[in-house]
Design a protein around this nucleic acid. Structure first.
Lengths: 351, 351
DNA sequence: GGGCAGGATGTAAGCGCTTACAGGCAGCCG
DNA sequence: CGGCTGCCTGTAAGCGCTTACATCCTGCCC
């Protein structure tokens, strides 16, 4: 790196002023063709690339969007892959939308324990997307004082902040209705998530709503619950069966627990879907590979990221637009664990 | 956002000069305690966060590292998940190392078709990690003219550029040796990857080397090959079996194809590992969930990212250090598809 | 041929920081 | 009590761009 050339070198090389160089790059139409080409040639010859900081300082914009997502505690852990995948997919969607608008994406991984990150990162961006519960309410508030913020899939969004979330409740409602209406399921049970998870709570609510719609009694709390992990799901299901219970269908609050439940059911000699129907939530990659392939509710992860980015860009453009809350649809993905024969999918929910 | 406060407001608020504010933040020890606290209080009250561009322009550093990785063609495709996961994990490792050094990570997703990306992004970074074959040789060259570059897991690295790669060849050699020595495997076959993949080629070479060491004849080309996908692996294996061949063991160039091969074997009524042994490469999440769990070679993805970041930081610090090429070890992950009874893992390879 | 319009380019003032250097002041020595 | 040391803080010069405004030309019109 022989010291990156600046706009001054290019100007000298092309025999013009630095203003002209800037124009050749940013508003080519303002220049006479011959001048423009001369400048562009100099740019190419020198391998000139404008300094991001200088550009940013002069325009008052960084042209960068930040994403705050949670870190995994121990860099070596293999569990929690799903959380990661979720964030990766959101990132993908976000980057896609950002790029359309000429923005790049900067990563700000939040410490899982403190639920915060170096705020100085925010100074490098024009706005940030905060994913799920990656930062604390207090950090969120401080952050929002400095740059526009959009919360994605997060609970408890403070007044006045844009956010996008997923129709969790409608998702489980749809899959439950499918079980009820299309398979005449009886003796349903719900395998819930951790008590402090708002997602788990909404999913349970959707389940209850579907039962109510069908005129069935709905329980006040999940019949069994675990911590969203495969192992937890297996243990919970084992204990449930050990009590002598024999559900006709198990609606699970996520796929990993459903996979665990499948294992426990198999251990107990129960056939899915012949003896029991099982459904999940998320549509992780594994869902289609277990046996039988898992009927589940697909989360629109990429769309979540893309939508968050769009809301953010909109607010950057005009800080005064009224804040918006969006809810994205899930999609029912029918495979065999619900008793269906062939793959198929039905859309669900609302905006 | 009531217009983000600048260092001037903070200075006024605290009754000091802007230089003192800057010092309070960057070199706290240079100030009298009382002054420092006064400034810090003003900073907190105003919610001041320094402007990234201004800081960058003044220091001549962006404190940002870039990662160039390949885009997926169609945002809707679900295939190719593995490639994605690979990049995500590398990113994770890179971010981890970058953060240690006070750097953030910016994403520069390269267009899959043109194998390039907006070079202006490079102007926002102090250096870039280029992943695998995400950018063309020409773009790489132009990029390297502007900022320090480290290539991770990429082939054909130009002279003078740092790079990190994975000991592909040693990986397959180890797993092949395991088959040969610990299981007395006979009639081995190699399921290779696409012809233009250097990784696939190295993996095949490792296989041959292990055969040679064992005094067995080694084929000049893979016995069967596919495109690294599950479907491809299944098709290739089917065709192979349809020809009446009955391998005693199949070493696959990646996990996805191994999973496909497993399926084809099952269709043909062959039991793994009783009739045939099968191994993969990568250790994707799925590997432990297929039946039987797949013995494979784990790639150090995070480490790849972390090491690349470290090489980059080193070069940013001192552009004149001699370029370095590093090779990371893989690890043999023994599960049941090779005929072993219990899980276990053995390290392999060299720096 | 003078004057004027309008397009192309140059001039120069910032953008918000960092940091070398200058300046001020307290304490201490002789 | 003058002057010197050193510590602390302020002054001001950039860092590399963008852009409003000034300037210069060319071409035309009357």
């Amino acid at each position: 790196m022989p010291e990156a050339p600046t706009i001054y070198e290019v100007a000298r090389h092309a025999g013009v002023s630095i203003a002209t160089v800037s124009r050749a790059l940013r508003r080519p139409d303002d220049l006479r063709e011959e001048t423009r080409e001369r400048v562009l040639r100099a740019v190419a010859e020198l391998g000139y690339v404008p300094s991001g900081p200088a550009h940013g300082l002069a325009t008052g914009r960084t042209w960068v969007l930040g994403l705050a997502r949670a870190d995994l505690h121990d860099p070596e852990v293999e569990e929690g892959h799903e959380t990661l995948l979720f964030a990766d997919e959101v990132l993908r969607g976000m980057e896609w939308a950002a790029r359309q608008a000429g923005y790049a994406v900067l990563l700000a991984t939040a410490d899982q324990l403190w639920r915060d990150f170096d705020l100085e990162l925010a100074g490098k961006t024009d706005g940030m997307v905060v994913l799920a519960r990656s930062v604390s309410a207090e950090v969120l508030e401080r952050l929002a004082r400095r740059v526009p913020v959009v919360v994605a899939a997060g609970p408890d969004v403070p007044e006045g902040i844009d956010h996008v979330s997923v129709a969790n409740s409608e998702g489980t409602a749809a899959v439950t209705a499918h079980l009820l209406e299309d398979h005449g399921a009886e003796r349903l049970a719900f395998l819930g998530g951790p008590p402090d998870s708002p997602d788990a709570a909404s999913r349970f609510n959707g389940y209850r709503a579907a039962l109510a719609v069908a005129g069935r009694p709905a329980p006040g709390r999940p019949d069994l619950a675990a911590d969203f992990t495969e192992g937890g799901g297996r243990a919970a299901m084992r204990a449930y069966l050990a009590d002598g219970r024999r559900p006709g269908a198990v609606v699970c609050a996520n796929d990993q627990m459903a996979v665990g439940a499948l294992a426990a059911l198999a251990e107990a000699g129960l056939e899915v879907p012949d003896d029991v129907l099982v459904t999940g939530f998320d549509d992780i990659q594994l869902a289609r590979h277990v046996s039988p392939p898992l009927t589940t509710v697909k989360q629109p992860m990429r769309q979540l990221g893309a939508t968050a980015a769009e809301l953010l860009l909109r607010r950057i453009d005009d800080p005064l637009v009224p804040p918006r809350a969006m809810v994205l649809n899930t999609r029912l993905v029918v495979r065999q664990s619900c008793g269906c024969q062939e793959d198929d999918d039905h859309p669900t929910a609302k905006e």
